[in-house]
Design a protein around this nucleic acid. Structure first.
Length: 136
DNA sequence: TTTCTTACA
DNA sequence: TGTAAGTA
């Protein structure tokens, strides 16, 4: 899969990313501080972004516009640990406490909605559980 | 000229 | 977040 390589190929400096994402350099660097993105660096310490980085920044921008804070964005964008995934499976199998939503399930629903297509009827349900993630 | 870090409003 | 300062 050489396409992966191309997508992760760091090519453009922050100036171009600013135009591509309509974000300010301040914001782009700020998101980097919070580890939402990790651009490569040149020998001169200049940041270099890849296509993947730009797409990720666009997602971040989307969430920001929807009123999600950094903590919330981290929940949505940061990779879900494998342990959580397995925990979900176990919980689903053990017909015990299968009444409440699993954190990872909720996580998927939120990401699905926040990032675009999301069934409106589901929103109200989510908003109630939202506190679990976007609390302070 | 552009970008970087640090720091103050 | 915006912006200023001093560099690289």
């Amino acid at each position: 899969m050489t396409d992966e390589i191309r997508r992760n190929m760091a090519l453009f400096p922050i100036g171009i990313v600013m135009k591509l994402t309509d974000l300010t350099a301040r914001q782009i660097r700020y998101y980097e501080q919070h580890e939402l993105i990790i651009p490569a660096r040149t020998g001169g310490n200049q940041r270099l972004y890849s296509f993947n980085d730009v797409e990720r920044l666009l997602e971040i921008k989307d969430l920001i516009e929807k009123g999600v804070n950094i903590a919330g964005i981290k929940q949505v964008l940061l990779p879900v640990s494998k342990d959580s995934e397995e925990a979900t499976v176990l919980n689903e199998q053990s017909e015990v406490k299968r009444r409440e939503l699993t954190d990872t399930q909720l996580h998927r629903m939120l990401k699905q909605q926040l990032l675009g297509g999301g069934k409106r009827g589901q929103v109200s349900l989510i908003q109630g559980e939202l506190s679990r993630f976007f609390k302070k």
